[in-house]
């Protein structure tokens, strides 16, 4: 019920036009990691909400613990409705390291929505990708890494704002990123970022 209301509300706010450029969709054999540009707290849940039901039920957004664990309502949404994987952004230790958490989820057969930039950028620009995505790929190569480009969401809920403004947003899914053996970390991160940004240019 809350799930339906929440997705309905999100749809009213964002219009959520969805494009699938990839071929692998819609019945992937492997688990998937959707990685996207990050500009708003709503990013992860928007991708989650536009996925078809059979994929959505086994896809978990990766979200910041400090934001989504703050109030009861957010906690309820993130844990009960979209089963977010809450990760620590500031106090990372060996035990709670995000990458460990994420590989566990993938091992369990669930897919992930992941934002390689880490914290949200200023808005328009897509920042450089942090090493997290590379860690994930090297620890779990047996997944499909799908680039996703989000447009306009930073305008719906810009940094520092609490109240959203409705705008039509687009979510573009691309082809799974081919993994190349012995690719250096920087090359890989650069290629991954290009894969996301290319979806923007095709619009």
């Amino acid at each position: 019920m809350i799930d339906l209301l929440f997705r309905g509300g999100l749809r009213l706010l964002t219009g959520a036009q969805t494009f699938w450029k990839g071929e692998a969709y819609p019945y992937p054999e492997k688990v998937q990691v959707y990685f996207a540009n990050h500009s708003s707290h709503l990013d992860a849940v928007l991708i989650w909400s536009v996925l078809p039901p059979e994929l959505r039920s086994k896809t978990r957004p990766v979200a910041a613990r400090d934001y989504w664990n703050k109030y009861r309502f957010r906690r309820h949404l993130s844990q009960k409705v979209f089963r977010a994987v809450l990760i620590e952004r500031t106090h990372c230790t060996k035990e709670n390291h995000p990458v460990l958490q994420l590989t566990e989820v993938l091992d369990g057969g669930d897919s992930l929505i992941f934002f390689p930039e880490g914290s949200r950028g200023g808005g328009e620009e897509t920042g450089t990708f942090k090493s997290g995505l590379h860690h994930l790929v090297s620890r779990f190569p047996d997944a499909e890494y799908i680039p996703v480009y989000l447009e306009n969401l930073n305008r719906v809920l810009p940094k520092g704002e609490v109240l959203p403004v409705p705008l039509i947003c687009t979510v573009t899914f691309g082809n799974a990123l081919p993994l190349i053996a012995d690719e250096s970390r920087n090359d890989f991160l650069h290629r991954a970022r290009e894969a996301v940004l290319n979806l923007k240019r095709e619009l």
């Binding site: 306009n152 305008r155 409705p166 039509i168």
Partner: peptide, 20 residues
């Protein structure tokens, strides 16, 4: 309709509160 119109305007940070 407003949502479509405002999307075309491509508002900046300064418009956010007024648009709300």
């Amino acid at each position: 309709a407003l949502r479509e119109f405002v999307t075309l305007i491509a508002p900046g940070r300064g418009d956010h509160r007024a648009l709300f």
